[in-house]
Amino acid sequence: MTIIGYFFLLVGASFYALGGLGMFRMPDVFNRLQAGTKATTLGTISLLFGVGMLHPEWMLKILLIIVFLTITNPVSSSTLARSAYLAKVKTKTKKDDLKLLLNGDDDDD
């Protein structure tokens, strides 16, 4: 049990490192978000599961944190990507089918 727990901990921590590295190396904001979100979500799931393996009595609470983070992390990065797109952040993207999103969405509430 301890060995499995530490294995998950190490895997999670390496994904965190990869996420940070991806955040640093990728060329524009959408690619950065992709790298960051995927790596940190799997890293969090793995690291938290490792801690849960080491302390089985916390498992339920840790599962709740995992569920919460797995819902919020993609939502927040999608929202950020949409805002970055709408704010016309510079990208290296060549193909763009999204033009529709910009038209007819004005709303001054």
Partner: peptide, 18 residues
């Protein structure tokens, strides 16, 4: 406070769970 765009679908639906 005024926004230029409506909130997107993802945050709008995600909010109702979160």
């Amino acid at each position: 406070v005024t926004f230029r765009y409506k909130p997107g679908f993802i945050i709008n639906q995600g909010m109702k769970i979160i």
